[in-house]
Amino acid sequence: QKPVSAYALFFRDTQAAIKGQNPNATFGEVSKIVASMWDSLGEEQKQVYKRKTEAAKKEYLKALAAYR
């Protein structure tokens, strides 16, 4: 399975908490809140997710090379 983006990892980590705080929110509303949070996130915090994405990408490429 291809690795997901840094934003997708952040979304996955954040979505449940947002939904818990806003139980009646639609998926679209939750998405807007998470997107706003991502935009206001500091670069250092974004780097945490970007590093996770890079590590997953390297593992994916290694597994793909081994498969071929």
Rank of each mutant, 00 (worst) to 15 (best):
Q1F: 10
Q1M: 14
Q1V: 06
Q1R: 10
Q1C: 04
Q1I: 11
K2E: 03
K2T: 05
K2M: 05
P3F: 14
P3G: 13
P3R: 08
P3K: 11
P3Y: 05
P3C: 04
P3D: 15
V4P: 12
V4K: 07
V4A: 07
V4F: 08
V4I: 14
V4C: 10
S5Q: 03
S5T: 14
A6Y: 04
A6Q: 07
A6I: 01
A6F: 02
A6V: 02
A6G: 08
Y7S: 04
Y7Q: 07
Y7P: 03
Y7R: 06
Y7K: 11
Y7G: 05
Y7I: 03
A8C: 15
A8L: 06
A8I: 03
A8T: 07
A8V: 09
A8D: 13
L9K: 04
L9R: 03
L9Q: 13
F10E: 02
F10K: 00
F10H: 14
F10L: 01
F11C: 05
F11V: 08
F11Q: 08
F11I: 02
F11P: 00
F11G: 00
R12M: 11
R12G: 06
D13P: 00
T14G: 01
T14F: 00
T14L: 05
T14Y: 14
T14V: 08
Q15N: 07
Q15D: 02
A16G: 07
A16E: 15
A16V: 05
A16M: 04
A17H: 11
A17P: 03
A17G: 07
A17V: 12
A17S: 09
A17N: 07
I18E: 01
I18Y: 12
I18W: 01
I18Q: 01
I18V: 12
I18G: 00
I18N: 01
I18S: 01
I18D: 00
K19W: 03
K19P: 00
K19T: 06
K19F: 08
K19S: 09
K19I: 07
G20P: 05
G20D: 15
G20F: 10
G20E: 14
G20W: 03
G20K: 09
Q21Y: 04
Q21R: 13
Q21W: 04
Q21E: 14
Q21M: 07
N22M: 03
N22G: 00
N22W: 07
N22T: 05
P23H: 02
P23Y: 00
P23F: 00
P23T: 00
P23D: 00
N24I: 00
N24G: 14
N24F: 08
N24Q: 04
N24R: 10
N24S: 13
A25T: 04
A25I: 09
A25S: 05
A25R: 10
A25G: 01
A25D: 01
A25W: 03
T26F: 00
F27Q: 14
F27H: 15
F27A: 15
G28D: 14
G28P: 13
G28R: 14
G28I: 10
E29I: 01
E29K: 02
E29L: 01
E29F: 03
E29T: 03
E29S: 04
E29V: 02
V30W: 05
V30C: 05
V30L: 09
S31C: 08
S31Q: 10
S31F: 02
S31A: 09
K32A: 11
K32D: 10
K32R: 11
K32N: 15
I33Y: 08
I33S: 06
I33T: 12
I33E: 09
I33L: 12
I33K: 12
V34P: 01
V34C: 08
V34E: 00
V34A: 12
A35V: 01
A35Y: 07
A35P: 01
A35I: 09
A35T: 10
A35Q: 12
A35C: 06
A35D: 06
S36K: 13
S36R: 09
S36H: 10
M37C: 07
M37P: 01
M37I: 04
M37T: 11
M37E: 09
W38M: 04
W38S: 00
W38F: 01
W38Y: 07
W38E: 02
W38A: 00
W38I: 00
W38H: 01
D39H: 10
D39L: 06
D39V: 06
D39T: 05
S40R: 12
S40Y: 05
S40F: 01
L41W: 00
L41D: 01
L41I: 07
L41K: 00
L41V: 05
L41A: 06
G42D: 13
G42A: 10
G42W: 00
G42T: 13
G42Y: 03
E43C: 08
E43K: 07
E43T: 11
E43R: 06
E43Q: 12
E43S: 09
E44H: 06
E44V: 07
E44D: 13
E44P: 07
Q45M: 04
Q45C: 03
Q45R: 10
Q45W: 02
Q45H: 14
Q45V: 06
Q45F: 04
K46I: 04
K46C: 01
K46Q: 10
K46R: 10
K46V: 03
Q47M: 09
Q47P: 01
Q47S: 10
Q47G: 09
Q47V: 11
Q47C: 07
V48D: 07
Y49F: 15
R51L: 12
R51W: 10
K52L: 03
K52A: 04
K52E: 07
K52R: 12
K52P: 05
K52I: 02
K52Y: 05
K52N: 08
T53D: 11
T53Y: 15
E54N: 09
E54V: 06
E54A: 10
A55I: 08
A55F: 07
A55L: 11
A55G: 11
A55K: 13
A55Y: 06
A56M: 10
A56Q: 11
A56I: 08
A56F: 02
A56Y: 09
K57S: 11
K57Q: 11
K57A: 11
K57M: 13
K58R: 11
K58G: 10
K58W: 04
K58H: 06
K58M: 10
E59I: 02
E59T: 10
E59G: 06
Y60D: 14
Y60N: 06
Y60T: 15
Y60I: 02
Y60E: 14
Y60C: 03
Y60S: 13
L61Q: 14
L61V: 14
L61H: 14
K62A: 11
K62G: 08
K62C: 05
A63G: 15
A63E: 15
A63I: 04
L64T: 15
L64V: 14
L64H: 15
L64P: 15
L64Y: 08
L64A: 10
L64F: 06
A65W: 10
A65R: 11
A65D: 13
A66M: 09
A66Q: 14
A66I: 05
A66Y: 09
A66S: 13
A66D: 15
Y67A: 15
Y67G: 15
Y67C: 15
Y67D: 15
R68M: 06
R68L: 09
R68E: 15
R68F: 05
